[in-house]
Design a protein around this nucleic acid. Structure first.
Lengths: 101, 101
DNA sequence: CCGAGATATTGACGTCCATCTATGTCTCCG
DNA sequence: CGGAGACATAGATGGACGTCAATATCTCGG
């Protein structure tokens, strides 16, 4: 690990000014933040990993069965994952099938 | 996008049972969650991206200068990033230099 | 149509957390 | 040594969010 020391002038912490924060394409910063927020909850991360582990879209009721939280909570988490662009939903009759996007 | 339909039996939402949630090596689930939590804040994500954009470790004071939040808030964010294993700190005298881990 | 069931929405509530001010700790210089 | 400055910590506070119960919406079978 090479440091940038030594510091020649004693009244400044470093000789070279740091690089600026790199710009991101329009909307990409918000997208990235939304993805991290979506996966920053234990339940929601597990829901996403369960969906990602499937070979085919998984029914919402099967997701509800596998967690100890209520059905509205699962529905809320699925909406967050959908808004973040992480999963897609396709409805067939009364059932909703989720898959990774 | 191929769905798993049609459903033959009308009283169940799907014919095959979903795959279980895959197991992760010990501690890896907590680590992954900690990383997502650490990057799930706008300020903290920007701090991390600023550190990652450098060619050499960056001084903490240079980070403070680049954001509109107080010095204790930056110190708090840096501690979260450090705890999540995303950055490392090396002190030289009174200055602290941060780099990606 | 009407009832049953699957999913989504609403509103309330408790907890977590980002932020601040104030203060502590540590290092260096005169 | 003592003061100044860089960074960390402590405590308080306001807002964000995960969760639930209740309810709405939608679809299908009888």
């Amino acid at each position: 690990m090479t440091t940038r020391l030594p510091v020649i002038q004693s009244d400044v912490c470093c000789t070279t000014s740091p690089n600026p924060l790199p710009e991101l394409p329009a909307g990409q910063g918000e997208r990235m933040l939304a993805v991290f927020k979506a996966l920053a909850d234990a339940t929601r991360l597990a829901v996403f990993r369960l969906i990602a582990a499937q070979d085919a879209p998984i029914c919402a009721c099967d997701i509800v069965d596998r967690f100890d939280v209520s059905q509205p909570t699962i529905a809320h988490h699925l909406k967050v994952l959908r808004t973040a662009g992480l999963v897609t939903v396709s409805r067939h009759g009364v059932w909703a099938y989720y898959a990774v996007d």
